[in-house]
Amino acid sequence: METRAAIREEGIPAAPPLFELRDVEFAYGGRTVLSLRHLAFPQGAVVGLVGPNGSGKSTLLKLLALLLAPTRGQLLYGGQVAAGREGELRREVTLLLQEPFLLKRTVFENVAYGLRTRGLVEGVSERVEEALSLVGLSPKRFASRQWYQLSGGEAQRVSLASRLALRPRALLLDEPTASVDESSALLIKEAVVAASSEWGTTLVVATHDLVWLHEVATDVVSLYRGRVAGHGAENLIQGSWVLDPAGGLRRPLADGQWIRALGPEGSDEPPSVGILGPSDVTLATEKPSHLSAQNLLQGQVTHMALENGSGRVLVSVNVGGLLLKARVTPEAVLSLGLHPGLEVWAIFKATALRWL
């Protein structure tokens, strides 16, 4: 499955993607954990990576960071094969992991370290102060602190500042806010968005913070078992699909409700993952009657977010322990009075699901 095509004006050639993977596979100990036919990341884009644990998000980020090499296939950077240029390209690409790693020295020296290893002599202090300010740390208060004098959230922000000081062409983030306090998480998110808007940095973010991701991302890539399952806010419905006595397939939910679907053609085995587009899900505040060939599931609104680029609102609904996203207009939000905590009915056709 390919990414969305880049939009360009007629007569103006499109710039090559910053990253492009062609028939890329990666294997650990002979077991393939990533298999991507084609995936591209446009320059200046903000791309989210989502999927369950073990879906390949961290492995993909390490490939993009040139810390791993594909077992098979090609990784292109700026339209040219990256193999053989890793040392040069690592000066433009940086990865921030979930757990911060700091050198045993002051905050200033931690942030300045990457600049000095790249040979920068002049302007180091200014770049360090700018990066610390971006992550909400006062240079006067924090620059002279030792690494052990920081809280977990502060350490992660210093780790991010050390990367922002480089003004990288690509910033890759692996669950950057998963282990920090709420205020630090907000500052980290604001800082990476600022890097994108001010410097044109390409961001690739693996995170479970879906509300924020859909607000800022230009594309969201869903991964499942090392493959691209879809783009955007699609619902991946995993679990035990079984044959429905009435025909087709069904999947039980924790509260006793069922999702019903038509199975893939030409297969006798129940599939493992169904994909449901958020535009195929309709919400109602009262139970409709006289519906045929449709799923009618009761749930509760948990989150709402304005989707970047579409002008629509993504409404997340907890249905029997399964989180379903519906894409609705702002007018529908107002007319239905949607808000977190509201009990609603999620409606979609059995034919709306497709299979991975």
Rank of each mutant, 00 (worst) to 15 (best):
V121T: 15
V220R: 01
V242T: 14
L203M: 09
L243E: 15
G200S: 08
E154R: 14
S222A: 14
S138G: 00
A185N: 05
K189N: 12
P168Y: 09
R163E: 07
G200Y: 04
I188E: 01
R118Y: 06
S184Y: 03
D174K: 10
H208T: 14
R163I: 03
T207G: 08
G119S: 12
E130M: 08
L164V: 11
F142N: 00
L213G: 04
S125V: 15
R225A: 14
S183W: 13
G239I: 10
S133L: 10
G152M: 13
G200K: 09
A131L: 05
R141G: 00
S222R: 12
L249R: 02
D244N: 14
P252L: 05
R250T: 00
D174Q: 09
V221L: 04
D209N: 12
V221K: 02
A112V: 08
A178M: 06
G136K: 02
D244T: 07
T207I: 08
L166M: 14
L132T: 06
G152V: 14
E130P: 03
E234A: 13
V121D: 15
G153Q: 09
G152S: 11
S222D: 05
L160S: 06
W199Y: 13
S144G: 10
A217Q: 01
G153P: 08
V211G: 09
V192M: 13
V128W: 03
E234L: 12
G123W: 13
L249A: 03
G239Q: 10
L186C: 03
E130R: 12
W147N: 07
S138M: 01
L137E: 04
L166T: 02
L166S: 03
K140E: 14
V242N: 06
V242H: 06
G119K: 14
L171E: 04
A217P: 08
I188T: 06
E175W: 01
R251S: 12
S162Y: 07
L203V: 12
L164G: 01
V205S: 02
H214N: 07
L120R: 15
G152Y: 11
V242K: 10
G119L: 14
P252R: 06
L166D: 02
L166G: 02
W199A: 07
T117H: 14
T117I: 15
V128H: 04
V180N: 02
A165P: 05
L164C: 04
L249Y: 01
A185R: 09
G136Y: 07
G136T: 00
E129C: 08
T218H: 13
Y148G: 06
G248E: 04
V205Y: 07
H231F: 15
G232L: 09
G248F: 00
Y224A: 11
A165R: 07
L223S: 01
R145Q: 08
P139M: 07
